[in-house]
Simulated assay, not measured.
Amino acid sequence: MAIRLLVSDVDGTLVDPQKQLTDGVIAAVGRLRAAGVGFTIISARPRSGLMPIADALSLDEPIGAFNGGIVFRRSGEVMAHHRVAGDVARGIWAVIGDAPVDRWVFADDRWYASTDQGVHVEHERRASAQEPVVTQDFDALLDRADKITFVSDDEPLLRSLTARVAPEYGARATVVQSQTYYLDITALEANKGAGITQLAEAFGVTLAETAAIGDQANDLAMLEKAGLAIVMGNAPDAVKAKADKVSLGNDRDGVAHAIDHFILEKGQ
């Protein structure tokens, strides 16, 4: 079946390692759309971090922020909004306890953080296109959180925290490591499997006519639902194992390669 829509992850996929859209990727998205194939993005980023990409690509179609927790258009229209339930957020916060991790809460289109220092803060400044609001008092924010992120370069620690949180709260929230150094908590409906379903419906296409491209474990839910699952060359082997096609890395315009060789060539 011909592909009529491509849904792309952003970090590690659409943008290069410096978090930039390259000319090659921008041109390839243009070729895709000129061929009549729709294109949109879904990401763990907040809306503020997706707007510059939407502007650069002139994306007026629905977009998924917070892994689909907010589906919106760059005009400002919000089509769906799912927050973490307050009691779930507090329960997870208690499980994490005094673990040595930085804490971020995204609420009310703002980014609240336990510190404004560190390499991941700098990366998030670029990804979110905003400055953190430093606080140690997160309690009131937990009632309206779009996303909670626990940050650490201690990958075994984050894996162990994920293993503690998921069995207790995985039925009421999406618990996933979007990167090896991020443990993300979003609403149960805020996962890329539900997100790609909403986006395909908005474009008027079936999932069988939809391709997805990503690079991390939080992309697996949409890769499993897509008619064509494309994984980036820089992805972990466990994610590549779920691919129909493996592209080049994001340091080599892997999205452009996928568009030209896996979608446009196939459609000719």
Rank of each mutant, 00 (worst) to 15 (best):
A212Y: 04
T174W: 00
G214A: 12
Q179T: 14
D219G: 04
S178W: 09
A202Y: 14
Y181D: 15
A194V: 08
A200S: 12
I185M: 08
N191K: 06
I196L: 08
G214E: 09
T186F: 02
A208T: 05
Q179P: 10
T206N: 01
A200W: 12
I185Y: 03
A208E: 08
L188S: 04
K192W: 02
A217N: 05
Q216D: 02
T180M: 06
G193P: 06
A173P: 11
S178Q: 12
L183C: 13
E189H: 05
T186C: 02
V175M: 07
G214M: 09
E189M: 03
Q179M: 14
T186W: 00
G204F: 09
L188E: 03
I196F: 07
E209Q: 15
T197H: 01
A211Y: 12
G204P: 07
T186N: 04
T210A: 03
A208H: 06
T210Q: 05
A208Q: 07
L199E: 00
T180N: 10
D219F: 03
L207E: 11
T174G: 00
Q216G: 02
T197A: 06
A202W: 15
K192I: 02
T174F: 00
E209W: 15
D184Y: 08
A173S: 14
F203Q: 01
L220I: 11
N218Y: 10
F203H: 10
Q179N: 13
L188I: 05
L183A: 14
D215C: 13
A173I: 12
D184A: 10
V205G: 11
F203E: 00
A173E: 12
A187I: 01
V175P: 02
G195W: 01
Q179A: 15
T197C: 01
L183F: 14
A212D: 08
Y181S: 15
G195L: 00
G195P: 00
